[in-house]
Amino acid sequence: MSTAAPQRSPFAMTEARVLIAGGTAGVGLATAERFAALGAPHVTINGRNAERGEKARAAVQERYPACKVHFVAADTCLTEQAIEAGRKAEELMGGVDVLVNSTVSAYPYPTLFHKIDIRDIQGMVLTQVMSHFLLARVVMDGMRARENGAIISVASDAGKVTTPGESIIGGLMAAIVMFSRTLAIEAKRSNIRVNCVTPSIIEGTLTYDTVMGGEFSSKLFSKAIGMAQLGVVNAEDMAGLITFLASPAAAKLTGQAISLNGGISAA
């Protein structure tokens, strides 16, 4: 029996058909622009708000006319809508080579556990993790058939470092991290790579504004910002790492949860 590892041929960035969940603003939108700038022929951005989504699509399309930019409106935390979003993306692009999931929970700010309304917990769980699970399953069959693909999820260092106020957020982020690592081992036989990016705080985003507007969370993250001696991460920094993870340069990198935090911690 041969023990030689299979020889794989990663897709070039100029061949990548990219689906970005949460792609209408912040990290997702910056990532869409970076893929388009690198020569991706198709980019589909997804979000719940059709007006904001179409505006984002038009802006990327105008800036990068060589890339065909699409928008699919869907709440990918819901099973049937996630399935339909994947079907439309496959139809529009002829397949999905790269899935980037940068969806953001409706409850992004740290809060001490005993102060969380118990009626909010179910929504926190559904809006933070379900899209990652559902969309990965949606694109998996096509990627397996083509024996090529890259899945990149955006989670948080809260899933690695215990921080007061992040008991639920940390648990959910850890779920995304472990899901990505385990799926990477399952999917490697089909030449599908799965990685996760775990930032701390990302300036210039709606989540940043929300977090810094809260009394408890602003104190927590103001301290963290002071520890970012390499500079506070922004959406463009995230886009650079995400596109690298999808590129041929990362063809042998899978199952990793990479902290991008400017030196706040070595998580």
Rank of each mutant, 00 (worst) to 15 (best):
Met1Ala: 15
Thr3Val: 12
Arg8Met: 13
Pro10Lys: 06
Phe11His: 08
Met13Leu: 15
Thr14Val: 11
Glu15Ile: 05
Ala16Gly: 08
Ile20Pro: 11
Ile20Trp: 10
Gly22Glu: 09
Ala25Lys: 15
Gly26Ser: 06
Gly28Asp: 12
Leu29Gln: 10
Ala30Gly: 10
Ala32Phe: 08
Ala32Asn: 06
Ala32Asp: 02
Ala32Ser: 08
Ala37Met: 12
Leu38Ser: 10
Gly39Gln: 03
Ala40Cys: 07
His42Gln: 09
His42Trp: 10
Val43Asn: 00
Val43Asp: 00
Ile45Gln: 06
Ala50Ser: 09
Glu51Asn: 11
Arg52Pro: 11
Arg52Leu: 14
Glu54His: 06
Ala56Lys: 07
Ala56Leu: 03
Ala58Ser: 07
Ala59Arg: 11
Val60Trp: 06
Gln61Pro: 13
Cys67Val: 11
His70Pro: 00
Ala73Val: 14
Asp75Thr: 02
Glu80Gln: 12
Glu80Ile: 07
Ile83Ala: 11
Gly86Ile: 09
Lys88Cys: 13
Ala89Leu: 12
Ala89Asn: 06
Glu91Met: 10
Gly94Trp: 01
Val96Arg: 08
Leu99Thr: 06
Tyr109Met: 15
Phe113Ile: 15
Ile118Asp: 13
Arg119Tyr: 14
Gln122Phe: 13
Leu126Pro: 03
Gln128Tyr: 10
His132Tyr: 05
Phe133Met: 11
Leu134Ala: 01
Arg137Trp: 05
Arg137Asn: 08
Val138Ala: 08
Val138Lys: 04
Met140Lys: 01
Gly142Asp: 11
Arg144Val: 03
Arg146Ala: 12
Gly149Asn: 02
Ala150Asn: 04
Ile151Glu: 01
Ile151Gly: 00
Val154Trp: 00
Ala155His: 06
Gly159Ala: 09
Gly159Phe: 07
Lys160Val: 04
Val161Thr: 09
Pro164Ile: 04
Ile168Arg: 06
Ile169Glu: 04
Ile169Asn: 07
Ile169Asp: 07
Gly170Asn: 02
Leu172Ala: 06
Met173Ala: 13
Thr182Cys: 12
Ile185Cys: 13
Ala187Pro: 12
Asn191Val: 08
Arg193Gln: 00
Val194Trp: 00
Asn195Pro: 02
Cys196Ala: 12
Val197Gln: 01
Ile201Cys: 01
Glu203Lys: 15
Leu206His: 15
Val211Lys: 07
Gly213Tyr: 11
Gly213Leu: 05
Gly214Asn: 13
Gly214Leu: 14
Phe216Met: 12
Ser217Ile: 09
Lys223Pro: 02
Met227Val: 06
Gln229Asp: 15
Val232Ser: 11
Val233Trp: 01
Ala235Asp: 03
Glu236Ala: 15
Glu236Ile: 13
Ala239Met: 10
Phe244Met: 02
Leu245Gly: 06
Ala246Asp: 05
Ser247His: 05
Pro248Glu: 03
Pro248Trp: 03
Leu253Arg: 00
Gly255Trp: 01
Gly255Cys: 05
Gln256Tyr: 07
Ala257Ser: 09
Ile258Pro: 08
Ile258Phe: 08
Gly262Met: 05
Gly262Arg: 07
Gly263Arg: 02
Ser265Met: 04
